[in-house]
Design a binder for these strands. Structure first.
Lengths: 248, 248
DNA sequence: TCGTTTTTGATTATTTTTGATCAAGTTAAA
DNA sequence: TTTAACTTGATCAAAAATAATCAAAAACGA
């Protein structure tokens, strides 16, 4: 019974019952609890399950009502850790860009009380920061309800009018080939932000690593740093190109 | 039964019944009351429920920040009547500007289901319409927390890039001398909107009539129509200049 | 075959979760 | 207003789950 097999059975059981617990799995798969725990943690890193004490539930579990919060809920612990680490690079007086990534959104809680300027196209970020210490600059353009973000030509033009010390962006996937996005619009925003900032930080949980996605839009060294919970060894190709890997 | 599962069940029950109480939950989820209380407190911390004595009720959608509601609350009935009347001039397919006036905000409820494009710099309007039929275009620029609106040079530039059939604006005061605003920024936005639209509707309740305010920024015939609950006789000077007076 | 790497399991210390008790606070009826 | 019933948060202790460490077993490549 190797990991691949166990993984399949765990996911199958999860899909069927909606939850699994460590003890039952250890019994059913004829292995030890610690092995099951390790498996579950791996699956959790990959974003395939949501870890609970004593077991796991499907990653897609309808945790929260709002669509965005829901999306953000997957891998929440990892994303929060990444966001906290990234926030430690932000100081009073900074001017930063934030895009509409769900990990980037988790930054909000850590910067609410900082005296900084934030330029963003993400509606959740706007909502979260509109009554905070932060001075907000909102990117204008067409509102994309599905992504809860502002996109379009004018958004790009708007971004090009500003310059920031740091940009914090998310992607949909990352591989040796470069950065991947869901859509051209998200890609265009990411490119614009990177072009207009001195330093670009990519916030990326382990689930996105080596997962090429829809559109490859930039080489990996467009960013200066990657903040991730993944094993740095997985990102050797990035390091080789001079990208700083910041683990959490 | 772990926290994640309880959380789901609590939220499900809350959505269904509208309220939950500690005892019933403890019984239903087969755990102790103190655990339920802890769960409810956690959910409350996350803003998902509103804690009551003995239980919890759904968290009210934190749609509009308080100050705005407050401001909007004065003269609410009159403002709603004015907004309803103004909305009757909006048809599917229209492209309209909306500014950050409190009466203009009352328009939202009447246009939620129309198939129109709305270009606005008002955060409450954005919040209200972001999950509606309406296609939103958000004016970019610096966010002014006090006025809950987007202002600044870039906002004006943004507006100048668009043209709409109708603009709906509010003012702080109105007299034979012209239109008055609280601040230069609001005035600049109003001017820009009027310049970029075929027809400009001024939404103005009786309390504002013949109340010159801080800054006189435009002649009264900058607008093509005034929707108001005031006696039309009070606005003869406007009518004389060719402004249409629409009573409610 | 030998040496290296990977996977797994056992043990222990730590962390998390839960429940019991009790003083303090809140609600509602008298 | 006062009393009585109920609810709550704080503190502590027990139970469960977990991470960390190390060692054994298995898989692997040369």
């Amino acid at each position: 019974m190797n990991f691949q097999l166990r993984k399949q059975k765990i996911l199958a059981q999860l899909a069927e019952k909606g939850e699994v617990d460590t003890k039952a799995l250890a019994l059913a798969l004829d292995t030890s609890e610690i092995t099951i725990r390790r498996d579950l943690n791996l699956l959790s890193d990959q974003g395939l399950v949501y870890r609970t004490h004593g077991g796991a539930i499907p990653a897609e579990a309808p945790e929260m009502p709002h669509r965005f919060i829901h999306k953000a809920a997957s891998n929440l612990a990892a994303k929060d850790k990444i966001a906290a680490k990234a926030a430690s690079y932000i100081e009073d007086g900074d001017i930063i860009f934030m895009d509409c990534g769900s990990t980037v959104f988790r930054l909000c809680q850590f910067i609410k009380n900082k005296r900084i300027k934030v330029i963003t196209n993400s509606m959740p970020v706007i909502s979260e920061l509109q009554n905070s210490q932060v001075s907000l600059n909102i990117v204008g353009g067409e509102y994309d309800a599905a992504r809860q973000a502002i996109h379009g030509t004018l958004a790009i033009e708007h971004i090009r009018r500003y310059h920031a010390g740091k940009a914090f962006i998310g992607v949909d996937g990352l591989s040796a080939q470069g950065l991947f996005a869901h859509s051209e619009m998200e890609a265009a925003i990411a490119l614009a932000l990177a072009a207009q900032s001195t330093q670009t930080y990519l916030l990326c949980d382990a689930a996105k690593i080596d997962k090429p996605s829809y559109l490859q839009f930039a080489p990996i060294d467009m960013v200066q740093a990657i903040v991730t919970n993944a094993d740095p060894a997985q990102l050797k190709y990035a390091k080789k190109k001079g990208v700083k890997i910041i683990g959490v």
